[in-house]
């Protein structure tokens, strides 16, 4: 008996060891060009439509309970007229050594073979541990079971679980779309092609700031963009090894030039 327990424990510890899955078949990666992103929020609504995110109303919003798997952070700095505004879309970073995975007492969040940070709804008991461990604040909790009035419920995506009260959720990189692409690839006995998987946010992005693909494929767009000298990752100092790569925004240093001093 104790032997089995020991074995299970070891196996589970493996899951939590950073870099356990180094050999991914696919290494899904998103590259976000902050110089292209104009903060228009199209991705946010596209995500709502694709992933059955509920709306919670004004009161719940004021308690920070709104559901956004992807959100746009805005930083407004400086004083009139030298104002600098910066936008950054933030979703689950799918960290390869994710803090949230260390915390969950029921293993409802773990890292899978494709380098994705998984959230299993039917295993989640809602301890909120992952959300407190997450440095990016991307996890959202179902405080209630939210229902759409008829016939708005007819829009719900049948490929995505409708979550109920007490469950934590977050961006999945549109796993349902990855699955459709993999399914098609398997039918044709090949690997998923570059550009075949397009998450909802990437699909709708008007400026083309978001790019998604398999970084293991050296010919893919993300693999090329990931080598950009502008690359950085969010809060890299935390050693979370995220799968989302940002490209630096090009902008003048604030206060470096005042108006009237040009030329």
């Amino acid at each position: 008996m104790s032997k089995i327990v020991k074995k299970v424990k070891e196996r589970l510890r493996d899951f939590r060891r950073p870099g356990y899955y180094k050999e991914f078949e696919y290494n899904w990666t998103m590259v976000i060009d902050l110089d292209k992103c104009n903060g228009c929020e199209a991705c946010v609504v596209a995500c709502h439509a694709e992933n059955n995110l509920p709306i919670v109303g004004k009161d719940e919003c004021s308690k920070s309970r709104a559901f956004n798997w992807i959100r746009i952070e805005r930083y407004v700095e400086g004083e009139f007229p030298n104002v600098k505004v910066k936008f950054i879309p933030i979703m689950c970073q799918h960290c390869n050594s994710a803090p949230c995975e260390l915390g969950c007492p029921v293993y409802a969040t773990y890292h899978n073979q494709d380098g994705l940070n998984v959230q299993v709804y039917n295993r989640c008991v809602g301890t909120f541990t992952c959300a407190t461990y997450c440095p990016y604040d991307v996890r959202r909790f179902n405080w209630f079971t939210y229902k759409w009035p008829e016939p708005l419920d007819q829009q719900l995506n049948p490929d995505v679980t409708v979550r109920e009260m007490g469950v934590m959720e977050k961006c999945t990189f549109c796993i349902q779309r990855i699955r459709v692409a993999k399914d098609r690839a398997k039918d044709e006995n090949r690997k998923v092609r570059d550009g075949e998987v397009v998450p909802a946010c990437v699909q709708s992005c008007p400026t083309g700031a978001l790019v998604f693909g398999d970084r293991n494929d050296p010919k893919s767009r993300v693999a090329k963009l990931a080598k950009s000298p502008r690359r950085f990752r969010l809060l890299e100092g935390l050693n979370t090894d995220p799968s989302v790569i940002y490209l630096k925004r090009v902008m003048k240093k604030s206060g470096s030039k005042k108006h009237g001093e040009h030329g």
């Binding site: 902050l34 952070e73 805005r74 930083y75 407004v76 700095e77 910066k86 936008f87 950054i88 502008r230 950085f232 969010l234 809060l235 940002y246 630096k248 925004r249 090009v250 902008m251 003048k252 240093k253 470096s256």
Partner: peptide
Amino acid sequence: RTEELGRGIVQTITP
């Protein structure tokens, strides 16, 4: 918050 507070969230480079 709409301040970065020196966290380097949106990193930039000059033109």
